[in-house]
């Protein structure tokens, strides 16, 4: 227990902030966990159909997006090191790079989804409803899970934009950077989820 923390009126507890962030990440983990349960059950029930449906996804785009997210995770982590070393400018540019990677990820996602929708594969479409149940479920889950993930990418970018503003104003600086750490933690979670989504949707061969 840090007894010194109580002597200040506005007390600062970076350790506590990180702990709170981790707890929040657990809720995100379980949120996706619910979807993974649904996925696991339906894949178990319709193995063959999941296998067939997965052939229709473009593994190259999936892999490209995996590499993009992994790299963005690295630049996010590096921005902390840069700030700790006092390189505010470098730190900020690393965040900008992270955001750009996130943008690229979303552009890829957009093309991937539009291609599918163009082929008439989207929830409730005539083409999809005609297919076997397992394939309907596969694509239903594909849209829901990658969609929710994409939503998290957008939230992550928003958080990083806020952190950039805080760094500009000096609220986040070399000695007080827990906000950046927490933003990066969130971003790594987005990466972590994708690490599982990728093999589960693109690599069922």
């Amino acid at each position: 227990m840090s007894s010194t923390a109580h002597t200040h009126v506005a007390h600062r507890d970076d350790y506590g902030s990180r702990m709170g962030m981790w707890l929040f990440l657990f809720t995100e983990l379980i949120l996706f966990g619910g979807l993974f349960i649904v996925y696991a059950v339906y894949r178990y029930m319709h193995q063959q159909e999941f296998h067939l449906a997965a052939q229709e996804l473009n593994t190259t785009i999936g892999m490209l997006n995996t590499i993009i997210l992994l790299t963005s995770s690295m630049t996010a982590a590096m921005s902390i090191t840069a700030l700790q070393k006092g390189n505010v400018r470098f730190s900020m540019s690393l965040i900008v790079v992270t955001i750009l990677f996130a943008g690229t990820f979303m552009v890829n996602k957009f093309f991937e989804w539009s291609a599918k929708i163009h082929h008439g594969i989207y929830p409730g479409s005539k083409e999809l409803v005609m297919r076997p149940e397992g394939e309907i479920l596969y694509f239903g889950l594909y849209y829901v899970m990658t969609g929710l993930h994409a939503l998290h990418v957008i939230v992550g970018v928003t958080i990083f934009v806020f952190v950039l503003v805080f760094m500009k104003t000096g609220t986040v600086n070399q000695t007080a950077y827990v906000k950046l750490e927490n933003a990066a933690l969130y971003w790594h979670l987005v990466d972590l989820i994708w690490i599982f989504l990728f093999p589960l949707f693109y690599l069922i061969h």
Binding site: I30, L31, F32, Y42
Partner: peptide, 26 residues
């Protein structure tokens, strides 16, 4: 979070008909 995602899935089901909870779609 489990109830969060479950209720969200029902909302999605009602809007889009993804089939996750709809026996007619599997």
């Amino acid at each position: 979070p489990i109830i969060g995602i479950t209720l969200a899935l029902v909302i999605v089901e009602r809007f889009l008909g993804v089939g996750i909870f709809d026996p007619a779609l599997g």
